[in-house]
Design a binder for these strands. Structure first.
Length: 305
DNA sequence: AAAAGTCGCAACCGCAAGGGA
DNA sequence: CTCCCTTGCGGTTGCGACTTT
């Protein structure tokens, strides 16, 4: 027995939306809202469309304040940096680009930006596959493990609370060429501000301060500069659990020109500290060398390469 | 001028998660 | 606790527009 269809396929129209349908949908939602039920909406709005289709059309095209047209250099950089950090999690990426939808960004990445960034290195665009990160973490000697400021080594799961800051300062270093040199990283803030979301649900969590409940940290890369210590934060936020990704950057990193104060505010010290060359390298690393966290695994950390 | 190839975007599909009954 | 419904997400497809041969 198959999965129940979300709507009566025989009686719904598919394909491109006509201006009349757009108008009906826009008018209905502006007057009544979505009513929290997309499935029932098309019938109420007098549309012969699947609820999912209505939702998609509204979120990706009709919703107010959507930006259409060319992506700016800044947007390019944000997309590239985030893609290198978290992979194809378009909704998260979209949440950092007001007015852009996940679908927009996904299409833009797949059709233009990927080629723009990686034009000279097509082999870097092959599909990632998974490797298990656990052995790498387990086999790390103490000298190359991450220490927090209580002198304990990080495990893939490291619960912590409050505003404790994390720093890695015990390792020797005068260059960035080795794993050992991943030092002086710190979480610039464990109280992170989230920007207004433009993700496909259309919701908007303006400037909420989320209290970190738990962090999962892992080392991402092969030990060369451009690698990342990347992690995931769970928040305690008035009963609402949410997650975000953090990236630890060298505390002595300089600012990259062109990074706005607004971006810095949104991101603290993190991803936008990269210039285009570093981004390119990160993309290359994340799909060839290749490391992306798979958050579907919790007991052990998994990477793609 | 026409056919073939490529590109870009909108839309669809199916799975997983969330949440209420 | 389980089931079922709805939503959200990311991958994929379809197709019109444009370019090349």
């Amino acid at each position: 027995m198959g999965r129940a269809p979300c709507c009566d396929k025989a009686n719904v129209k598919k394909g491109p939306w006509s201006p009349e349908e757009d108008e009906k949908l826009r008018e209905y939602i502006e007057k009544n809202g979505t009513g929290g039920n997309w499935i029932a909406l098309p019938q109420k709005a007098g549309l012969k469309r699947c609820g999912k289709s209505c939702r998609l059309r509204w979120l990706n095209y009709l919703r107010p304040n959507l930006k259409h047209g060319e992506f700016s250099e800044d947007e390019d950089r944000i997309i590239c940096t985030l893609y290198a950090s978290i992979g194809s999690r378009w909704s998260i990426i979209a949440s950092q680009l007001p007015g852009r939808t996940d679908n927009d960004i996904k299409n833009y990445w797949n059709t233009k930006l990927k080629k723009k960034m990686m034009g000279m290195n097509p082999s870097a665009l092959k599909k990632p596959h998974q490797v298990n990160l656990s052995p790498m973490l387990q086999n790390s000697t103490p000298s190359s493990s991450f220490k927090n400021n209580h002198n304990s080594y990080f495990q893939p799961h490291l619960p912590f609370t409050g505003s404790e800051s994390i720093s890695y300062s015990s390792l020797p270093s005068d260059n960035y060429s080795t794993f050992e040199s991943l030092q002086n990283y710190q979480v610039s803030s464990v109280f992170m501000e989230t920007s207004c979301s433009s993700s496909s649900d259309g919701s908007c969590n303006n400037n909420q301060i989320n209290h970190v409940k738990e962090a999962e940290l892992g080392y991402v890369g092969d030990g060369t500069f451009g690698d990342q210590i990347i992690g995931r934060l769970s928040y305690l936020n008035s009963g609402v659990e949410d997650q975000d990704t953090l990236k630890l950057v060298p505390s002595n990193a300089g600012r990259v020109s062109g990074v706005t104060d607004e971006e810095t505010r949104l991101w603290g010290e993190s991803p936008l500290e990269y210039g285009l060359e570093e981004i390119k390298q990160l993309i290359s690393n994340s799909s060839c060398n290749n490391f992306m966290l798979d958050d579907s695994k919790t007991g052990e950390m998994v990477m793609y390469y």
